[in-house]
């Protein structure tokens, strides 16, 4: 691509080879926050022990990856090449196989408003529909190179989420068995209301608890969950969620082995059974604590099926 850009835009300056991806370079840039949520189960958020033996119910796991790198600079403006992919890995006889087909796509990210019309038209002629304007609809975008770069990363992230939702939707149309989705499910309505999807979020930059609830979550013991609460967002579908401790946090930070689970919000007539649903799904998730997802650094929160998805995507990308 660097050669293409050099031929296309003589002023383009190739970025250094071997630089880490923008996702790695930009890790931890988002600010942590606390958001209050309405508890659906009982009055106040509290810890619940998940009774019953772990049960193997998930038939498949869904995850996606993204990878973006600066290909060249035009002046101070980065032209970013991003790859996004998603896959559903189905478990058959305890072995993982690819369900349907993985989706792998690439995009070229460039802020049209910053690079100017000539450059944009040249890029559009070369890359057509693959070209994405990172300045489109972002009124706050500045010309700072880091800001431009982050905009590209966010677009790549959105692209990855779209691919994941595309596959999840396909699963919901064709299958009835539970699908373990790495990440939230609220971004797509069809997925968010489906009874066969379970989203498991490992990142806790946003915590949906405040006050005493935060202490409850931080002190959850292994095999315990929090009360179910509702997550509502303007841009997302409302879902039911709870925190679940997968592993014993002794000797680790409060977030160690902690995941947040998202399932479809219960219908009004089933609202009183949301606790049972949370226990059931929690047992499914606790059944996935082995084998360990090592050597992935997030192995305390990651289940092996998700690691398998990531390994698969790493191999085919």
């Amino acid at each position: 691509m660097q050669r293409q850009l050099a031929a296309l835009l003589p002023q383009a300056r190739p970025a250094g080879l071997g630089e880490s991806t923008l996702e790695v370079a930009g890790q931890g840039m988002d600010a942590p926050r606390l958001i209050s949520a309405t508890v659906l189960e009982g009055g106040a958020l509290r810890a619940h022990r998940v009774f019953g033996a772990p049960a193997t119910q998930f038939r498949a796991f869904l995850d996606g990856t993204q990878r973006s790198q600066v290909a060249s600079y035009i002046g101070h403006v980065p032209i970013v090449l991003g790859h996004a992919a998603a896959v559903v890995r189905e478990r058959r006889n305890r072995r993982m196989h690819t369900w349907d087909a993985p989706v792998v796509e690439s995009r070229v990210y460039c802020p049209r408003a910053v690079v100017g019309g000539t450059v944009w038209r040249s890029l559009q002629a070369e890359y057509g529909a693959l070209l994405v304007d990172t300045s489109d609809g972002d009124a706050e975008l500045t010309s700072h190179p880091f800001s431009l770069r982050d905009a590209a990363v966010h677009r790549a992230q959105a692209h990855r989420e779209a691919l994941e939702q595309q596959l999840a939707e396909r699963w919901c149309r064709r299958e009835r068995d539970p699908l373990f989705i790495d990440g939230g499910i609220s971004g797509n309505e069809a997925v968010a209301v489906s009874s066969c999807t379970v989203g498991v979020v490992k990142s806790h930059l946003t915590l949906y608890v405040e006050g005493d609830g935060l202490r409850v979550v931080a002190e959850l013991a292994q095999g315990h969950r929090s009360s179910v609460f509702r997550i509502t967002s303007r841009k997302r579908t409302t879902v039911a969620s709870w925190y679940l401790r997968l592993r014993d946090p002794a000797g680790h930070d409060p977030m160690w082995g902690l995941v947040r689970v998202e399932v479809a919000h219960p219908a009004p007539d089933a609202a009183d059974r949301i606790g049972e649903r949370a226990d059931e799904v929690s047992r499914w998730i606790l059944a996935e604590v082995a084998p360990l997802a090592l050597p992935d650094a997030r192995w305390d929160k990651m289940v092996y099926g998700v690691r398998d998805c990531e390994e698969f995507l790493r191999a085919i990308q």
Partner: peptide
Amino acid sequence: GAQQTQRA
């Protein structure tokens, strides 16, 4: 028996 998935 606790291993629901065989490693790759």
